[in-house]
Amino acid sequence: MDTSQLLHTNRQYEEELRGLRAGLLKMGGLVERQIADAMEALVKRDTPLARQVILQDEEVNRMDVESDERCIRLLALHQPAGSDLRFITTGLKITTDLERIGDNAVNIVERVIELNEEPQLKPYLDLPRMSEIAQSMVKDSIDAFMRSDTALADEVIARDDEVDHLNHQVYRELLSYMAEDPHTIRRATNILFISKYLERIADHATNIAEMVAFMVKGKMIRHMDKKKE
């Protein structure tokens, strides 16, 4: 059942719910930006930009705390029910995923900073592709949440396979580099980590998309079919 278009009689409650919605939207935008910047820092070997991603994370962490506090306040003061309850509990879980995505972006740039200190091992082709997909998954999962759009959420979940596939491809390629020349191990490992972090970001977006299905239909679809990973 879709969310009602009627406003809540209690105005303060209505405003708090809007605040939660707006905060999550903003947080989603911030972490998307972090991923994009992290990838640009990698491809363009831009260490100052990498450091900026680390600084951006403070804002994401602050919003994570603010959003959680708002959810707890809503639960304690308004005893929400029905679709409101599902929206708020979903919000609680989504902020955790968004915050982790921010952390993963920070993890990526930490590796980028190390990589930028040595000559580039290979041209980056698969990683930007992975990043693009992961970023679109984050964006669409948040859009699906905002619009209660389960079809879009399903698409996000389906896209996770592509990222897993690319991650595996990167792994095999780097394995051959390392087998041929042990001098590449340090750089290849860093790249491998970046690939893994992107794969984790896609997983977090998948979590968000799965929560959207719960929020809209009231049914948990997590752990229903294939096990992730």
Binding site: S4, H8, G82
Partner: peptide, 10 residues
């Protein structure tokens, strides 16, 4: 829908 509106205070 009517139930939803009632229990959520709409």
């Amino acid at each position: 829908r009517e139930t939803e509106d009632y229990i959520t205070g709409r």
